[in-house]
Amino acid sequence: MNKNNHLWVYVTMGAALIVLFFFSLVYGAVRIPLGDVLQILSGSYGRREAWRHIVLESRLPQAVTALLSGGSLAVSGLMLQTLFKNPLAGPSILGISDGANLGVAIAMIYLGAASYLTTIVAALIGAAVVLLIILGFSRKVSSNVMLLIIGIMVGYLASSVISILNYHASADKVHQYVMWGMGDFSGVSLSKLPWLAVCTLAGLLGSFLLLKPLNALLLGDAYATNLGINVRRSRILILVCTGVLTAVVTAFCGPISFIGLAVPHIARLLLGSSNHRHLLPVTLLSGSCIAMLCSLLTVTPGSNSVLPLSAITPIVGAPVIIYVIVNRKNLHYFN
């Protein structure tokens, strides 16, 4: 594909990102006229304190959270798909999300932790444990498909432990946990936002530094080694980056499925190439756009209720995966 085509994708996705971000500020459960939103954003608004509060303290952080989380999950998914050479790899498939999930469940149910810092740490520990298990097996099991299956099994184990914990926990704690488990971009307040931003941006920066090994890994481990890439070290760094990104997003927003799995495919379809030099930034942009789109779709027009995010992401993600698998020629990215 030529350079003009890449430029076209960047421009389109950039424009979509800006439009969706703007739309996220204007559109919501409470109807606020466009003129008022613009005035609130420009800082010269003093009429209705409630509206100002909704736009700046609720919609703005929610839009930024969706932007950061969506991009992070999508980039994690892309790195895992390249590392495991499998189109169906993703943070939720490999049990990393479940590990983070289990960490949070233990923290919420047993430590009674409401503090977000504890939640982050718990999620990081949970994700790290799963990653260590997968890394440990990767020394014994050379096949990436087998490793993927081990990841899925570890995910099931974590889910099952969570169920057992829930069974023994008190009702209100379970409720708190279940609500978190729905996945939500709106739980991050303006004061927590810098934490999310710093952690995800660090993880994303790390991913961009791995551009060279990621491209070399497209040729497989032996070719990558022959090109002077330290495959073992790259593999660990990729897993650490995906672990941080997934754990942080899971800690702040709860488990969010399908974005990590589906978005890299959308980005490949847009670009027509799996060269990470363009695929990584386009995946990041697409992830942000799709997360904001999903976040917008949770708002039912004319009603005050908001749908859970976990009800929306599969509706957007699952058809993409089915499309990619049915149109086998799209899978040529993996051959």
């Binding site: 594909m1 390249t82 050479k85 060279k212 491209n215 070399a216 890994l217 497209l218 040729l219 497989g220 481990d221 032996a222 070719y223 090109l227 002077g228 890439i229 490949r268 190439s273 799996s274 060269n275 040529h332 990215y333 993996f334 051959n335």
Partner: peptide, 21 residues
């Protein structure tokens, strides 16, 4: 090598460029 690759999705130019790594 005879190893299976995931290089299907990159252009020939990109593939040959990897040799410059």
């Amino acid at each position: 090598l005879t190893e299976r690759t995931q290089a299907g999705g990159i252009s020939v130019y990109d593939l040959v460029s990897l040799g410059r790594y």
